[in-house]
Design a protein around this nucleic acid. Structure first.
Length: 260
DNA sequence: AGCTATGTTGGGCG
DNA sequence: TCGCCCAACATAGC
């Protein structure tokens, strides 16, 4: 559940189920998830309530009524589960029980997720070295960021200290729409290409976020449904290839995306 | 059985 | 110091 659009969905999910409910019990899972002593989580959360939420990139910060934020990073497989029954999910790493008998769990099978406590949004942003939230970047800012960026464009876009929120899937997606090869060097891109990338980034994030929240399918004109080696690309021009960039599986169309 | 997976971090190398 | 590559983490699904 991890890139900006999925986290945006988790934000709505929490906002619509779990706000302003007094936490009467707290259950904690695997040690490695917790970035402060586990007893601190228990102390802070018990008797408290979530009153709002804020997203920075792939992080979701839940504002608690009494001080502090509970911060969630979903790793590769994290998601929230709000429920009304007794059995707790096998992979629940944090379960809040509310006064009304309902519960909210952070489910994280691969345990790549993380939970933090922090007193301030800005401190947290600095500690994690997070760049600006992708959908809040202006075109001028985007162009400016690329002026001093080197290395492959895909690695640049995945760098959370550069821009926060993009990951493997949607970087491939936006580069496909922009017709830019993922191994192209950031320093070789023209202003025009960077502007095109900016618009495609915004389009992709907006469209995918709407698909996630409305429960609709990703458009067939997108690369994602064709993210299979040898599949014909959505433009009907080439066959999808898979290479490694920055250690991640990277799907692209060699006809639509020429390296520079 | 073996390969793949929406993420992050740390080490080694040139 | 940078850019790049790889391995590690832990589990599920094809």
């Amino acid at each position: 559940m991890p890139e900006l659009p999925e986290v945006a969905y988790q934000k709505i999910y929490i906002d619509s189920t779990s706000l302003h409910k007094k936490i009467v019990d707290v259950q904690l899972g695997a040690d490695k998830i917790f970035q402060s002593p586990k007893k601190d989580f228990k102390e802070v959360l018990l008797g408290n309530e979530v009153v709002g939420s804020h997203q920075i990139g792939k992080y979701l910060l839940l504002k608690l009524e009494q001080n502090d934020y509970l911060v969630i990073h979903f790793g590769m497989t994290g998601k929230m589960d709000y429920f009304n029954h007794d059995e707790i999910h096998k992979h629940a790493q944090l379960t809040l029980s509310f006064e009304d008998g309902s519960k909210l769990s952070f489910i994280c099978p691969r345990k790549f997720g993380k939970l933090f406590l922090t007193g301030s949004l800005e401190d947290f942003r600095k500690q994690q070295k997070l760049g600006p939230h992708a959908t809040e970047v202006s075109e001028e800012q985007f162009l400016e960021l690329f002026e001093k960026k080197k290395g492959s464009v895909k690695t640049a876009l995945m760098d959370q200290s550069f821009i926060a929120g993009l990951g493997n899937l949607y970087v491939d997606e936006m580069l496909f729409h922009s017709g830019i090869h993922p191994k192209s060097k950031a320093e070789n891109l023209s202003k025009k290409e960077i502007s095109k990338m900016y618009r495609d980034m915004m389009d992709v994030l907006d469209t995918v976020t709407r698909c996630k929240t409305e429960g609709t399918k990703i458009p067939d004109t997108y690369l994602q449904p064709h993210r299979i080696k040898g599949e014909v690309c959505p433009n009907g021009k080439g066959k999808v290839e898979m290479i490694k960039v920055g250690g991640r599986s990277t799907y692209f169309c060699p006809e639509c995306q020429k390296e520079k």
